[in-house]
Design a protein around this nucleic acid. Structure first.
Length: 1057
RNA sequence: GGGCCCGUAGCAUAGCCAGGUGGUGCGCCCGGCUGAUAACCGGGAGGUCGUGAGUCCGAAUCUCACCGGGCCCA
């Protein structure tokens, strides 16, 4: 053990600890220590390699690290491989930007090979940056050997999984409407669409009914560019529709529209008046044919037979008639299949009209909008704008469109029920994350479009013959190499695209050009991280995962993608327990985002307070599943508590070292059970703190098992602050100062050491640096070098004494009340008082105060602490006449009665009235009743009161010469100690000192009994107490003059060598 | 528009599932302590428990509606 001179400096402590971990390879040693323990298979949700971490990312890893450290200490062999998500559009977009590209054509011109090399380099570089940031948080995952979605072994797992899907007949090629990003020129999954408000045209258009003059169907749309692809109009079969005759600009028209909406539609179209000429339910309109208003601009439209079709999804909004373009909408597409409509999609991958788009060919859909509006001419009966939520590509943030294209799907809608059943098998924290939230999401799943028309990703291992159109799925590189007869050097594009397979039909199979949706990458993480299918043993031994934890946004993301892929491949969920955590928000409860400029960087907080404080803050500030509102004050508060912990730790060290203290040990190892032999001989406060540390251990253990990290961390923080620092340390300080060897001092050392060692174990998962630093200094030479090589210590329930803890709570309350009463009586705590009386009717309070009498006297600095029943018999009850009652009863005698009441003996009168309801006063024998008197409680002179729970505390603040003397003595001692400190003396140094008093009376009081004691207390070998004329003239190291209760005191101190 | 979660003093939170005087921390004001000291302790003020209705003898807690925030979806 060594003294710790400096106060807590987070970065100094943490840097030295991290350096120590690195130098001694502690993480590897911990892994090797737990190698043979029961396995705990954790899968790290892979962060995307953006190159920076934000508060939410930090929180995520801190949660993981704390839980994993807890399990390691319990002896579990924790599989803790970190993971990174390294493919996909965000990186492509970054690289495109760096190269100044705007379209896919630019990339193709540049060359896919060089392009993906840049992507790879970007991902690898950022992975390393992020690993460094995670390490600085104290996170112990295997960052030296993370799973990486771009690695060969990882890609092998993805290929294997697709083959499994094919075997299970869950892989399907389909011509379907998908979310499409025109900028990225690729399909994107439902999970990749972000919705926010956007302004679009809002138009009402009339479609001429075939064979009728001036008769029209009216539809509404926000996407004019889909009108060239219109095939049908949908009506609700049971809605009522009307044909109205309306006039505009003198011309009569017949318009079909839903009955309830007719008026608003006609007003929008500025029709002067209208008249209903016919009514029909929707089903009777079905089959009605109409023509496209754009047929002169889109020739193909002339050949299409447009008709009215029924659909349940039609609502009574706008016109009640819905424009259907099966090539441009999901509902439209499904309806098209059912009604055998043509799937017409005249828009290409970049969002431009094809030749089929007629006049609009070459225009982007956005640019086509105004042209189409012009071309509609009189068919456009109203145009406006609408602000609505619209989908955008979550990678490039551009608005998406819907396009019917050929894509590859996993038909997860087939296994919906199976997935729902698996969700119920998983243990969710909190429970509703699974039973409500995830369940509701999976209930609605559609088939998963896994193909993307991009470059940087896992190539989809499907080879197809351009001649006979048959295709084969490659389940492994070996399979491909065997069939193609060529080695596969890199499974990425463009290298893999060069590999061809001979087709039985005589053709040459080529790979389809698509890559996987990146969600498919991470979906296979739980087996890819075990190097499955390349290696089989670990998978058999560990899979499925014991635990994963991610943010609530991952419900639709990783929780789902893993479940889908795993249910297909293995028929079950790939995880057993899932903690869904919240989002990091700013102090106003808003989402942190770059555009709002309210991002909090973990690095800033670490620079100021250190990683341990950040960890404890995020873990204690809110329940893991609630959103975390970041609050700087909260961080400061945690920092204060950590600082106190440091002070609590360094305070006893000088004394322990001075006394050559050695903790109880067995074979050189500290013995956690070592105090049991002397437990019954320990003082109350010792047994209490031992009980408390076990109670806290119990709470921490139970809370951690239940993912209640906030409860666990708060219990520890409050133990440090309230129990250890504010109470136990204060109580045992006098014992530490004893000069001679004494059992009570030794016991205080033992107990404090025990509590600190236990606390370190509890706190290690939460704050791994500071605890490691403290452990390094407290450990015995034969013990492991690192705290993290120690086992978790389970609470010892035999040591927990609920009754004692309850009694101590009462004493703490008493302590507060005494301080309050003293404050009223203006008597400082340093000045002893003669007596404290606690008036109570609560037997528990009485028992606590009697039982812990010594502590009460010590804390109150009182000669006596007595317990009384209520009312305290020295309370003076001053009778106060109630004239409103007395007046009417006694009439003109009232003044006389008033005086009699005021002069009556209060205690007697109160007791009599309470017992009999009336009392007789004076020679005239006036009969007084309860309602005519109230009693004012007054205390004996010099007593001051303060309330505590179920009791009142009375403190006698009167000074006697004896008390006064001690008070002055304490004041002088304190100032001499202050001077020792100013001189920077060590605890063991001796001094010579002189105290000169301006007041002869006080001098006389002190001289007699206190001079020696003052000298001893301040470790003065030579000590003089004097009056001014007698002060010795000599030179001192330090001289001070003080004003103590109106007496001038000169103190002089020199160090004695 | 739908699902889930959250809304308690200036700020952050406990209590809510199993209804019965609303706790705690920070900040603020006042005081104290000083052999942990660029620390620490006590006291005080401060609350329509988002709003409104309902159930009940009794609602922060249960129910419904609405408002605000978050995540997800359409």
């Amino acid at each position: 053990m060594e003294k710790v001179e400096s106060s807590y400096n987070a970065n100094e402590v943490e840097e030295s600890v991290q350096e120590f971990w690195k130098r001694e390879d502690i993480y590897a040693r911990v892994r090797s220590l737990r190698r043979n323990g029961p396995p705990f298979f954790f899968v790290d949700g892979p962060p995307y390699t953006t190159g920076y971490i934000h508060l939410g990312t930090a929180w995520n890893k801190i949660l993981k690290d704390t839980i994993l450290r807890f399990h390691r200490m319990q002896g579990r062999h924790v599989l803790d491989r970190a993971g990174y998500d390294m493919h996909g559009l965000p990186i492509e977009v970054k690289v495109e930007h760096a190269l100044g590209f705007t379209t896919k054509k630019d990339i193709e011109a540049y060359g896919i090979g060089p392009f993906i090399e840049q992507c790879r380099e970007f991902a690898l570089r950022n992975k390393d940056i992020m690993s460094g940031q995670f390490r600085r948080l104290g996170v112990w995952l295997d960052f030296d050997n993370p799973y990486q979605t771009l690695s060969r072994e990882y890609i092998a797992a993805a290929w294997w999984t697709l083959k499994r899907a094919e075997e299970e007949q869950k892989l399907e090629k389909g011509y379907r409407v998908v979310n499409w990003c025109p900028r990225c020129e690729t399909a994107i999954a439902d999970a990749e669409v972000e919705y926010w408000e956007a302004t679009d045209p809002s138009i009402f258009v009339k479609f001429p009914v075939e064979g009728k003059k001036n008769e029209y169907l009216i539809i509404w749309t926000t996407t004019p560019w889909t009108l060239p692809a219109n095939i049908a109009v949908a009506v609700h079969p049971s809605f009522l529709y009307v044909r109205v005759s309306a006039k505009k600009d003198g011309r009569e028209e017949f318009l079909w529209v839903a009955d309830d909406l007719a008026e608003s539609v006609l007003r929008k179209g500025r029709y002067q008046n209208y008249e209903i000429t016919e009514r029909k339910v929707g089903s009777d309109l079905v089959g009605l044919e109409y023509r496209s208003p754009l047929e002169q601009f889109v020739p193909i439209q002339k050949n299409i037979i447009h008709r009215v079709v029924p659909a349940d999804f039609v609502t009574l909004e706008n016109t009640g008639m819905v424009h259907i373009a099966p090539g441009h909408g999901w509902d439209d597409y499904l309806l098209g299949l059912r009604e055998h409509l043509e799937i017409f999609c005249p828009v290409d991958g970049s969002g431009h009209f094809t030749r089929e788009g007629g006049k609009y060919a070459g225009l982007s859909v956005k640019d086509a909008n105004p042209v189409i509006l012009d071309d509609l001419g009189a068919s456009l009966i109203s145009r406006g704008e609408v602000v609505h939520r619209y989908g955008h590509c979550w990678r490039c943030k551009k608005p998406i469109i819907f396009r019917a294209t050929e894509q590859w799907f996993l038909t997860v809608s087939d296994i919906r029920e199976q997935m729902l059943a698996q969700i119920a098998e998983v243990k969710w924290f909190p429970e509703w994350a699974g039973s409500a939230r995830f369940h509701d999401w999976v209930k609605e799943v559609r088939d998963w479009c896994i193909s993307r028309q991009r470059f940087w990703g896992i190539p989809i291992p499907i080879w197809q013959c351009p001649e006979c159109h048959s295709y084969r799925v490659m389940g492994s590189f070996e399979e491909l190499e065997a069939l193609s007869g060529a080695p596969l050097l890199d499974p990425h594009r463009p290298y893999v695209d060069m590999v061809t397979i001979p087709c039985p039909c005589g053709g040459s199979m080529r790979r389809v050009e698509d890559i996987f949706d990146v969600w498919f990458d991470s979906a296979v993480a739980s087996w890819a991280t075990l190097k499955f299918p390349g290696v089989r043993e670990e998978f058999d031994q560990y899979w499925p995962a014991d635990f994963i934890t991610e943010g609530q946004d991952q419900t639709r993301g990783w929780f789902y993608s893993q479940l889908g892929a795993s249910t297909i491949a293995f028929g079950r969920a790939p995880y057993r327990r899932v903690l869904m955590h919240g989002f990091a928000l700013d102090a106003e409860g808003r989402k942190m985002s770059k555009s709002l400029g309210n991002m909090v960087s973990p690095e800033e907080i670490i620079a100021q307070f250190g990683a341990d404080v950040l960890r404890l803050y995020v873990l204690s500030a809110s329940a893991p599943w609630d959103d975390l509102k970041f609050n700087q004050e909260g961080v400061k508060t945690v920092n204060r508590t950590v600082n106190i912990l440091w002070n609590v730790y360094r305070f006893p060290l000088p004394y322990m070292i001075l006394d050559r203290f050695t903790p109880v040990s067995q074979e050189g190892l500290w013995d956690p059970e070592g105090l049991s032999a002397i437990h019954s001989r320990l003082s109350d406060e010792d047994r209490w703190i031992l009980s408390r540390i076990n109670s806290v251990a119990q709470e921490v253990e139970v809370s951690l098992q239940d993912c209640q990290l906030h409860h666990a961390s708060r219990a520890i923080l409050s133990f440090i602050l309230d129990d250890l620092s504010r109470w136990y340390i204060q109580l045992i300080r006098p014992r530490m100062w004893l000069e001679e060897a004494a059992a009570e001092k030794e016991q205080a050392y033992q107990c404090l050491y025990h509590v600190l060692r236990r606390l370190l174990v509890l706190l290690a998962p939460f704050a791994p640096h500071i605890t490691e630093k403290m452990y390094g200094n407290l450990r015995l030479p034969a013990e492991p070098e690192s705290l993290h090589l120690q086992d978790w210590i389970h609470p010892n329930e035999r040591i927990i004494d609920q009754e004692l803890e309850g009694m101590m709570r009462t004493v703490m309350a008493f302590d507060d009340a005494v301080a309050a009463a003293r404050q009223v009586g203006r008597r400082k705590l340093r000045w002893p008082v003669a007596e404290c009386v606690v008036a109570t009717e609560n037997p528990e309070v009485r028992k606590a105060l009697m039982h812990l009498h010594r502590l009460c006297r010590l804390r109150a600095n009182s000669r006596k602490v007595n317990v009384s029943s209520v009312p305290w018999d020295r309370i003076i009850w001053k009778p106060v006449p109630v004239m409103k009652e007395i007046g009417p009863v006694f009439g003109k005698d009232a003044p006389r009665v008033k005086i009699l009441v005021e002069q009556a003996e209060g205690a007697w009168l109160k007791k009599t009235l309470e017992a009999e309801g009336h009392a007789i006063l004076g020679e005239q024998r006036y009969e007084i009743t309860s309602s005519q008197v109230t009693f004012q409680e007054t205390m004996p002179d010099n007593f001051f009161a303060a309330p505590m729970k179920d009791a009142t505390v009375y403190v006698d603040c009167r000074l006697t010469p004896e008390l006064e003397t001690e008070g002055y003595a304490r004041e002088i001692i304190r100032r001499l100690q202050e001077m020792r400190r100013q001189l920077d003396l060590r605890v063991e140094d001796f001094i010579t000192a002189e105290v000169t008093l301006s007041d002869a009376r006080v001098y006389a009081l002190l001289k007699e009994e206190w001079a020696d004691l003052i000298g001893r207390e301040v470790r003065a070998s030579i000590f003089h107490l004097s009056l001014p004329p007698n002060a010795r003239e000599r030179s001192w190291n330090l001289q001070n003059e003080w004003d103590i209760e109106e007496i001038t005191v000169r103190t002089s101190v020199s160090r004695l060598d």
